[in-house]
């Protein structure tokens, strides 16, 4: 597909554009036909591809784990149960190592983050043109769309909205638990009275506020940046003549196996760390 596209830059741009549904500036609702139209839709638009893939993967995760959980037995486990137990034990171990409070939410939250983010990252290893080509075929044949205007970015974690959506949820939990454990005054005190005492309240607030807000932003941007860069390199490799692509894409994909697991783990681990910090009373 790479060599068929008109120019390398339009190919890359096409691959980096989400399938966006929203209100056009003229008031009609519909899919954006190019990047400019998508940008003009402003905040009240939705990336159909990101949502569809991420929800499908989330459901896959829940279906798989629920299936194992329903017929779980304490005898010798096998197959799927082994895998599920492995994941649960791994996450449980990580949570218990870091988080010493009592919470029913944090461990399942960590498990969801780890598996879901991993699955979304894993989409990166599917060759860059497979799913977009399928989407293009469906788009042109079923909906009669112009093939050049069917966008499909199938790695949800290369969409900043997806990662920021998760990290903001984590941020909400951080604030919730901070207030729940320390009370409103305790939380406000933590933000204003350290590290320099009460005569430096504005400065403390600035310092601690930045620290607090940096948590969700860094969480989202780290995952997004890693996956976006990885995806971009796959797209660049896809521009090469087809006979050469394997020489670069295979090593990069093998290296990427490490990245996708690592990033999912980091996202999970930092969430646990942030939440355990929220639970700690100074």
């Amino acid at each position: 597909m790479g060599i068929e596209s008109p120019t390398a830059s339009s190919y890359i741009k096409h691959h980096l554009q989400n399938l966006t549904y929203g209100q056009h500036p003229d008031g009609t609702w519909g899919l954006a036909h190019d990047a400019k139209e998508a940008a003009d839709m402003g905040f009240w638009a939705i990336h159909v591809d990101t949502m569809a893939v991420s929800i499908a993967l989330g459901l896959l995760f829940l279906w798989l784990f629920r299936k194992a959980a329903k017929k779980i037995s304490t005898d010798t486990p096998s197959g799927l149960q082994n895998f599920v137990e492995l994941m649960v034990e791994f996450v449980d171990g990580s949570v218990k190592e870091t988080f010493h409070g009592k919470s029913k939410v944090i461990a399942p939250l960590a498990l969801t983050i780890f598996v879901w983010v991993f699955l979304m990252n894993f989409m990166d290893l599917i060759p860059v043109d497979f799913l977009p080509a399928v989407a293009q075929m469906i788009g042109t044949s079923v909906f009669g769309a112009d093939p050049n205007h069917v966008y499909f970015k199938f790695v949800p974690t290369t969409d900043i909205n997806a990662t920021l959506g998760m990290s903001l949820s984590v941020f909400a939990l951080i604030v919730f638990y901070s207030i729940k454990v320390k009370g409103v005054s305790g939380f406000v005190g933590e933000l204003t009275l350290q590290p320099f005492g009460k005569w430096m309240i504005p400065f403390n607030l600035l310092l601690e506020g930045v620290g607090l807000l940096a948590k969700p932003v860094s969480l989202a941007l780290r995952l997004f940046g890693n996956l976006y860069a990885g995806e971009l390199i796959f797209i660049l490799i896809a521009i090469l003549p087809w006979g050469l692509q394997w020489a670069l894409s295979v090593p990069w994909a093998i290296f990427h196996i490490l990245i996708i697991v690592l990033q999912a783990f980091i996202f999970m681990m930092l969430t646990i760390v942030y939440l355990s910090m929220a639970h700690e009373d100074h």
Binding site: T20, F43, T112, N161, S169
Partner: peptide
């Protein structure tokens, strides 16, 4: 672009958790 996907993702995340 930052858009509604953010909220959609947060909501589905909450439901999954």
């Amino acid at each position: 672009n930052l858009n509604l996907t953010l909220l959609g993702q947060a909501i589905s995340f909450a439901i999954f958790v």
